Amino acid sequence: MGVKGSRRQADYRRYRELVETRPGLFDRSEGGIAILLDEGDIAAASKLVARRNRAKGLPASSASIGVLVEDAYILVLRDAVRFPDGSLGTHNRVIYANGARGVGVLPLLDGRIVLLRVFRHAIGRFLLEIPRGSVEAGDELEETVLREIAEETGGHVTTASHLGRSFCDTSLSNAGLDYFLAQLSCVGEPQLSEGIFDIVMVTPERFAEMVMTGEMEDTHAVNAFCMARLRGLVP
């Protein structure tokens, strides 16, 4: 059987540095999935997973523990873990550099929902989405709402109200968004530099129809819309 997949070894040395310098990354609630930090436990978990992965044609490096990616935006780790039943394994996770703080905005202009037609690199195609973005260091949520609307739609927010918060993909990352409903006085041009190609406006009734028919695939847009509708803020 040929070996498939990347042979790149995770950076274990950097991983141990993070254990010392950012211990909060490795804190866990009791009774959940435990991160193993003892050298012997880590070796045992990695060896077990490597054996399983070899049977799938994957290289030994696919079970290596450490830092997989580290840049200005994300930190990707592969941890050795003990599951609640006592079994050992590995688990990947994505940690956002900004502490996973972000906003998603359901914008309304003259009673219509303002959507963005965005090309998403990760899936290789266009989606209709609501504006969203990360909270920059030192900024408040409301400041981020104003900035994202201005940058992504060229619009101006007159009022904004907090709808709630939701995690995005808890199987892999710590990312979460605070959702807002924003009333706009205008919109301008989309932000082509971010892959935003067009601004599309639909009525709340049309948006609900798009959700039901599968045309609306942006989870954040659906979340924000449902929160707003449950609060009686959109028909």
Results as ranks from 00 to 15, higher is better:
Val19Glu: 01
Glu142Met: 11
Phe207Lys: 00
Ala55Val: 13
Glu140Asn: 13
Val211Pro: 06
Arg112Met: 12
His121Ala: 10
Thr213Ala: 04
Ala72Lys: 08
Ser173Tyr: 03
Asp11Glu: 08
Asp110Arg: 08
Asn92Pro: 12
Val76Gln: 01
Phe180Met: 09
Leu68His: 00
Pro131Ala: 03
Leu163Pro: 14
Glu70Tyr: 05
Gly40Ile: 03
Ser171Pro: 03
Gly32Ser: 14
Val157Asp: 06
Leu25Pro: 12
Ile123Leu: 02
Ser46Asp: 10
Pro59His: 00
Ser64Pro: 11
Arg78Trp: 05
Arg93Thr: 13
Val145Ser: 11
Ser171Trp: 00
Arg28Leu: 10
Ser134Arg: 07
Leu106Ala: 08
Arg7Gly: 02
Arg120Ala: 13
Lys47Arg: 14
Pro107Met: 04
Ala55Glu: 15
Gly111Trp: 03
His220Asp: 03
Glu39Tyr: 00
Val3Trp: 06
Thr153Leu: 15
Ala228Trp: 03
Gly5Pro: 14
Ala208Asp: 15
Arg13Asp: 05
Ile113Tyr: 07
Pro59Gln: 03
Val234Lys: 05
Glu136Arg: 11
Arg132Lys: 05
Ser64Gly: 07
Val118His: 06
Pro204Asp: 07
His91Gln: 12
Arg229His: 12
Gly102Cys: 07
Arg206Leu: 09
Arg51Ile: 14
Val187Met: 01
Leu230Ser: 14
Glu152Thr: 08
Phe207Thr: 10
Ala34Val: 13
Leu88Lys: 03
Glu148Cys: 06
Asp169Ser: 11
Arg165Cys: 04
Val234Cys: 04
Val19His: 04
Ile95Met: 02
Phe225Gly: 12
Arg16Val: 11
Gly164His: 04
Thr213Val: 10
Leu172Asn: 09
Val200Asn: 02
Thr170Leu: 09
Val202Tyr: 06
Ala50Val: 08
Glu209Ser: 13
Gly66Ile: 03
Gly214Arg: 01
Phe126Glu: 10
Gly102Thr: 07
Ser171His: 05
Val211Met: 11
Ser46Ala: 15
Arg117Met: 03
Ala208Phe: 10
Ser185Lys: 07
Val222Thr: 06
Gly2Asn: 11
Ile149Gln: 03
Leu37Tyr: 07
Ile74Tyr: 11
Arg13Lys: 12
Thr158Gly: 01
Arg7Phe: 10
